[in-house]
């Protein structure tokens, strides 16, 4: 499970430059929320979102693991 989270981090990071190209490319339809940035402002927002999702998943996994351990402890 932990390996999957690391894989998720790898894929999220790898997708960031692609996301920047896609979001800010000529065919993306992005007019720029703060002017003609020609950059990756949306990418950073996406990065923060993916980081947040990763953290939520990790904490949920931790809680799930703790519960599982408690259950196993009671049964044992």
């Amino acid at each position: 499970m932990c390996r999957n989270f690391k894989g998720l981090a790898f894929i999220s990071a790898a997708s960031l430059p692609f996301l920047a190209n896609w979001l800010n490319g000529p065919n993306s339809g992005c007019t720029g929320i703060c002017g003609s940035c020609g950059g990756s402002c949306l990418t950073w927002i996406a990065a923060c979102c993916s980081l947040l999702i990763y953290r939520i998943n990790a904490s949920l996994f931790k809680k799930y693991k703790n519960k599982l351990q408690e259950k196993e402890g009671k049964e044992g």
Partner: peptide
């Protein structure tokens, strides 16, 4: 994982053109 993932994306996205990496 983030370091190597970003590096891979950075290298591969270079072939798509544009100069977004500067941003």
């Amino acid at each position: 994982h983030v370091r190597y993932g970003f590096f891979l994306g950075f290298i591969l996205s270079s072939f798509l053109g544009g100069h977004l990496a500067c941003a």
